[in-house]
Design a protein around this nucleic acid. Structure first.
Length: 291
DNA sequence: ACGAGAACCTGTTTGC
DNA sequence: TGCAAACAGGTTCTCG
């Protein structure tokens, strides 16, 4: 579950479990994620205390004592679950009752963190597009993963003027441009579709043509959809049949994403949501009110 | 240099 | 029912 709102939801969920806690045991059960885990991963993390959990774009940053930061990207299918002894799972939580021999031992449970409070945090990622790296906390801003990232859309510095200048000269469709993390960092396929719908902008429009009044509509549309999704706890798609694995419910508020053939939800619009493919990814939009 | 497409990997859904 | 193709929330590499 990996766009900005989902990562932010995960971060908030992990804070009470990890913040200030010591990692008494870290176990990587598979080393070959998108990028191989750093050498001696388990030993370098075991015994460290967690200071702060931060987020940059779609990256989760776990600052540790000793001056290092664990960088986590969830890829397409990465998820965290928390397991605690003797707790009864609440609906809508990602906290599970711990099974002494089972939690973290699933086929795609790749990294297991145990804390000094007895909690177990499990990173699961069946497609293995996720990533975990260690980096010097002080030099994080210069890290190659972050050096080229565009502005965070929730930052006050992200304005229509900034977006317009980032889009200047872009011949790619605005849909593709917004997925480019060098232009703006944190959006993915869902929230790009939803933000363009809110701003009444066609996903096929040239990136460079989104300036002036259109950029002035798009910036608040992006901020609003992300903020609403964060409040809802992000979106939970497909799988996760178990109710206690659910995190967010924003998927019930989608206007266009995954709604091909349904009526456009905009008041007064008689359009039908269409699905097209751009740069190999599905785009959902209303061809009537998005221009 | 830019943009489109493929590749990475596994699981689920869809269509014949 | 069975099997193959299409598709899935991301990023990065290659090619034209």
């Amino acid at each position: 579950m990996p766009e900005l709102p989902e990562v932010e939801t995960i971060r908030k969920g992990l804070v009470p479990v990890l913040s200030g806690r010591r990692l008494v045991l870290v176990t990587a059960r598979r080393e070959d994620l998108r990028v191989p885990l750093p050498p001696n991963f388990n030993d370098r993390l075991t015994g460290r205390r967690v200071r702060i959990l931060r987020r940059r774009a779609k990256y989760l940053l776990v600052d540790l004592d000793g001056g290092e930061t664990l960088i986590v990207h969830m890829g397409m299918s990465g998820r965290f679950t928390v397991h605690q002894p003797g707790i009864s799972s609440r609906p809508g939580s990602f906290v599970h009752k711990m099974r002494e021999d089972g939690s973290g031992a699933g086929k795609h449970d790749h990294v297991v963190f145990e804390t000094d409070a007895g909690s177990r945090v499990v990173f699961t990622d069946h497609r293995r597009f996720g990533l975990m790296l260690l980096a010097n906390t002080e030099e994080l801003d210069n890290h190659e993963l972050f050096a080229g990232l565009g502005p965070d859309p929730l930052d006050d510095a992200f304005t229509a003027a900034l977006l317009s200048s980032a889009l200047a000269g872009k011949r790619a469709p605005i849909k593709a441009a917004l997925l480019d993390q060098r232009v703006i960092s944190g959006l993915g396929n869902i929230y790009v579709c939803e933000a363009l719908f809110r701003a009444r902008i066609s996903p096929k429009r040239l990136g460079a043509s989104v300036a002036g009044v259109r950029a002035a509509r798009l910036v608040p549309a992006i901020k609003e959809v992300l903020e609403a999704a964060i409040i809802a706890g992000g979106s939970t798609l497909r799988d996760y049949a178990r109710a206690d694995g659910e995190l967010g419910y924003f998927q019930h508020h989608f206007s266009v994403y995954d709604r091909e053939g349904l009526r456009c939800p905009r008041k007064g619009c008689k359009g039908t949501v269409r699905r097209i493919v751009q740069s190999g990814r599905s785009t959902f939009y209303c061809p009537v009110c998005q221009r």
